[in-house]
Design a protein around this nucleic acid. Structure first.
Length: 292
RNA sequence: GGCGCGGUAGCCAAGUGGUAAGGCAGAGGUCUGCAAAACCUUUAUUCGGGGGUUCGAUUCCCCCCCGCGCCU
């Protein structure tokens, strides 16, 4: 599509953005870029903390540059939260504060339910929306309330997030038949292990990266790492990675399904007829606008 | 041929004479700065088959089938 339209790819995959994580991230080798510029791939060090906010800032900058070149940015990837942060923006709140988080986490681990109790006091409305066990989201909510001295749910309303301007997004979603998709995912997963995923993990560790850096918690890497550390048999690691991948694909559908702006195409990107449909959709919407 | 143990959801598995734990997988969902993360909901009218005892059986008795182990 980028070739036909004069586009440049902007990655929207939370794992492909990291350097060194290639095989398990299903990165397209640079040799296969066919001259098309790819952005936000290998953009950050895997030991760095990277957030949706960081992504939105970087991606917006790239989009601006691409548009300035009279080219079409094609945002590709399956990280729904990043895409939302890019297109709709995040509310203007404080960035994550790790030292505060450490304190909150410690209290929570000592007294289960601590975070939810605190949030109930600081912001009952937010507490009602986050489950008692969802430590990640509770932590962020409490963090914001404490840092800002006001309820996060109030901030959501007041500081309307800034949507991306200057572009007309054309959202195209691929929805292949689930059974076929699962078969393909299983094969892809197996292929990653066959083509050196384990060696890649060992290589990354040899570079000096710790086993607890974020991307090692990703699909495939988590299981390959378990195998490397002798926790499980190779066949079990592959099977576990396949299952986790299928579950993730299902969750992605849950996320994107509720977006009414997505134009769904029933098939894989390489299937006959899919590209023409995507192009037709793009052209029908982008008539006089610049983007997709 | 004999003896023993076992047969509970797609898989693993607990269980009791009183109306089927739990885990995994599956399905559905949440998501405002770790998102390939984190979290939530849900899933057996039925316990290998057939008889019997009982107010009532997955649980007790009998027969049969299947699996595993041991003996001859």
């Amino acid at each position: 599509m980028a070739e036909v339209v004069g586009g440049e790819i902007v990655n929207c995959d939370s794992l492909q953005i990291y350097r060194h994580f290639n095989i398990g991230a299903a990165k397209l080798p640079e040799a296969e870029w066919r001259g098309i510029p790819h952005h936000l791939i290998d953009a950050i060090d895997p030991a760095e903390t990277f957030t949706a906010g960081d992504y939105a800032r970087m991606a917006r900058a790239r989009l601006g540059e691409i548009a300035a070149r009279q080219r079409v940015p094609i945002v590709a990837g399956g990280t729904g939260f990043y895409l939302r942060a890019l297109l709709e923006g995040l509310f203007a709140g404080p960035p994550r504060n790790d030292s505060l988080r450490a304190i909150l986490m410690r209290r929570e681990s000592r007294h289960a339910g601590f975070l939810h109790r605190v949030l109930r006091r600081l912001d009952p409305a937010a507490a009602a929306r986050i489950h008692l066990n969802d430590i990640n989201k509770l932590t962020r909510a409490v963090e914001v309330c404490l840092l800002e001295g006001r309820p996060i749910s109030r901030l959501f309303d007041e500081r309307r997030s800034e949507a991306l301007t200057g572009f007309t997004p054309v959202k195209i979603g691929l929805a292949p038949d689930r059974t076929t998709l699962n078969r393909r995912l299983d094969a892809r997963c197996q292929a990653m292990f066959d083509h050196g995923l384990v060696a890649e993990v060992q290589h990354i560790l040899a570079l000096g990266y710790r086993a607890d850096i974020k991307p090692f918690a990703a699909l495939g890497y988590r299981q390959a790492l378990q195998y490397v550390r002798g926790g499980i048999a190779l066949a079990d690691a592959v099977a576990a990675a396949q299952t986790a991948t299928r579950q993730y694909a299902k969750r992605q559908m849950t996320w994107f399904r509720r977006d009414p702006e997505i134009h769904w195409l029933a098939g894989f990107g390489g299937d006959a007829g899919i590209l023409p449909q995507a192009l037709a959709k793009f052209r029908s919407v982008s008539g006089e606008d610049k983007e997709g």
